[in-house]
Write a protein that binds this DNA or RNA. Structure first.
Length: 563
RNA sequence: UGGGGCGUCGUCUAACGGCAGGACCCAGGAUUUUGGAUCCUGGUGUGAAGGUUCGAGUCCUUCCGCCCCAGCCA
């Protein structure tokens, strides 16, 4: 953990989980802190999981405790090792190290023995009802359920049937093992919940050893207990499950882990449900799980997010029980703040327009010194080639400049960053009247960009040398959804209607400083006046591809918007 | 109409009966060789009504609103 992170965590007020842990330590309920992060290996991690990770690992770390990584692999029909690896990679990327790597499937044997124990105690029974019949007898939110006809089966018969379930004598779905609790309980989870279902399915770790698999409720708490987890932190929707969590632990007389629930993370302009993310991948709304528009950790990483920015964001959002939707602008703010400090500056021209300096000789080339990062003196300087023909941003020139436009226009003088003050004296146009080049003169005494007589030059433009610049592809990303709430759709429409058609704009023929011709995936830069960019894995030698991670704050854009 | 939760600026989050504070966001200004960064100023909030108290966001009562639960998913 970095020093800044330590300080930030120490400065901010304790959240309700930290308070609960402190109380537990003080009261002697626990004498240490052990947590776990329990992903199901059935998909990629997103920033919502990152919140859980930061909480699970963070609580342990702050209290000198440990956090296990435990794969909640109780459903072989939807899980795969492919996900195990990506999950581990994402956790490490965030900077966390788990203590033990565990799997719920490690405990299948123990779970089976405990199930037998509950049968012997008369607390569990084999039920021959099908899924539909179980549902039928469960009752509703307002009506109590009715007992299964198999509820009072003799212990010996239950034992025999359960052994035969395990032995594979029965087809999928034909029987279940259920806890015998209370069919009239107001909490539906307590109406004889299913502990085991028959699934003749190959498990990614246990192979064909088992054909009965424990449900979440039967596996999770017992896994916590086996790992001596003191604080089992999960999201709000499991609040209803806590009585069952505690019932199993009490009936078994095993280590009493404590479950505490917090609100999951939601973000504006995106979605966090695994189901919806999967849909977008399958419908090819995005290019994959690591599409830079996805809120997955692999997507954010490819977009150019730093672990520090994500962690800072999570820290600022806080931990509470209120259902909430964090503003994606805060996430973006955290990235800008981090990258402003550390990203090397560079010049890139996205939509090039030729600028010719008439009074600068054809064969002359100067290597001008440019500061790498004005926020960090130790970042040093670099040389940037300058010559007669340059490329500037098309939108930095206007034939008829609107009010408050400080950029280049006929007769106007601007500063070329790190270079010279230039004045536009004429333009070249094609047969359609489009400007194809602007012609300028320069002030030789302004080398470096300083006005020799101290005259005020308001506009500063970025540029590249037409002769030296490297070609690049630049991908401009924006929010995936146009509306803050993707589900805020009109009658008869759904989230598809809210997809932002401009979430990706690919620009080819961009030009960057020659120093950026060769980049490695993940290299980050601030392109002056444009934003923060990150080299994409699609980059090839001499042909870099940059993703815009986040734009710079743009007060000119606001002026334009205001009209 | 059952059970479990949750209501504090637009958003997120503090307050542990004692001046409702911070961040993001928004607006304005200063400054600037990035219309960036930085700095300054300003903006709006305790869901409602009663009650207890010298004093209530906090305690009590009632009401209102929102979220979750009827998988052999997690």
């Amino acid at each position: 953990m970095s020093d800044t992170e330590t300080t930030a965590a120490a400065d901010r007020p304790r959240n309700f989980i930290e308070e609960a842990i402190a109380e537990d330590l003080e009261s002697g309920r626990f004498d240490r802190v052990q947590t776990r992060f329990p992903p199901e290996p059935n998909g990629y991690l997103h920033i919502g999981h990152a919140k859980a990770i930061a909480i699970d690992f963070g609580m342990a770390r702050r209290h000198g405790g440990k956090c296990n990584l435990r794969f909640d692999d109780t459903n072989p029909t939807r899980e795969d090792v492919e996900y195990v690896d990506s999950i581990k990679q994402d956790i490490e990327w965030l900077g966390f190290r788990w203590d033990r790597e565990c799997y719920a499937s490690d405990y299948y044997g123990q779970l089976y023995d405990w199930a037998v124990e509950l049968i012997r105690k008369g607390r569990a029974y084999v039920c021959d009802l099908g899924a539909d019949e179980v549902r039928e007898l469960r009752g509703t939110l307002t009506e109590p359920g009715r007992p299964s006809p198999f509820r009072d089966r003799a212990v010996e018969e239950n034992l025999d049937l359960f052994a035969r379930m395990k032995a594979g004598e029965f087809p999928d779905g034909s029987r279940t093992l259920r806890a015998k609790i209370d069919m009239a309980h107001p909490n539906l989870n307590m109406r004889d919940p299913v502990m085991y279902r028959i699934l003749h399915s190959r498990h990614h770790r246990t192979g064909d050893e088992w054909c009965i698999y424990p449900t979440y409720d039967w596996a999770h708490g017992q896994s916590d207990s086996l790992e001596r987890v003191t604080h089992s932190l999960c999201s709000l929707e499991f609040e209803d499950h806590r009585p069952l969590y505690e019932w199993y632990i009490r009936e078994l007389g095993i280590f009493p882990s404590r479950q505490i629930e917090f609100a999951r993370l939601n973000l504006t302009h995106t979605v966090m449900s695994k189901r919806r993310l999967r849909e977008m991948v399958e419908e090819k709304v995005v290019h994959g799980w690591d599409d830079p528009r996805m809120p997955t950790l692999s997507g954010l990483r490819r977009l150019g997010y730093t672990p520090a920015a994500v962690l800072d964001f999570l820290d600022r959002v806080g931990v509470a029980k209120t259902d909430s939707v964090a503003d994606i602008a805060l996430l973006e703010h955290c990235l800008r703040e981090d990258l402003n400090r550390r990203a090397q500056r560079a010049m890139a021209v996205l939509r090039p327009l030729r600028l010719v300096i008439d009074d600068y000789s054809e064969d002359r080339v100067e290597e001008l010194e440019a500061v790498n990062n004005p926020e960090d003196g130790s970042a040093g300087t670099r040389k940037v080639p300058f010559c007669r023909e340059l490329l500037i941003e098309r939108e930095d020139f206007a034939l008829e400049p609107p009010p408050k436009f400080f950029r280049l226009a006929p007769g106007r003088e601007v500063r070329l960053k790190h270079a010279y003050l230039v004045t536009c004296i004429s333009v070249e146009r094609d047969s359609d009247g489009n400007v194809t080049a602007v012609r300028c003169t320069h002030d030789p005494a302004s080398r470096g960009g300083e006005a020799p007589d101290g005259r005020r030059v308001k506009g500063t433009l970025h540029w590249v040398s037409a002769r030296h610049a490297a070609e690049a592809e630049v991908r401009l990303y924006d929010h995936l959804f146009a509306k803050p709430d993707p589900d805020d759709a009109a009658e008869g429409e759904d989230w598809h209607a809210n997809l932002n058609p401009a979430s990706l704009e690919t620009l080819s023929g961009c030009r960057v400083e020659p120093g950026l011709a060769e980049v490695s995936t993940g290299d980050r830069f601030q392109f002056l006046r444009l934003g923060y960019f990150c080299a994409d894995p699609d980059s090839r030698p001499g042909r870099p591809v940059f993703n815009r991670s986040v734009a710079l704050k743009d007060s000119w854009a606001k002026v334009v918007r205001a009209g």
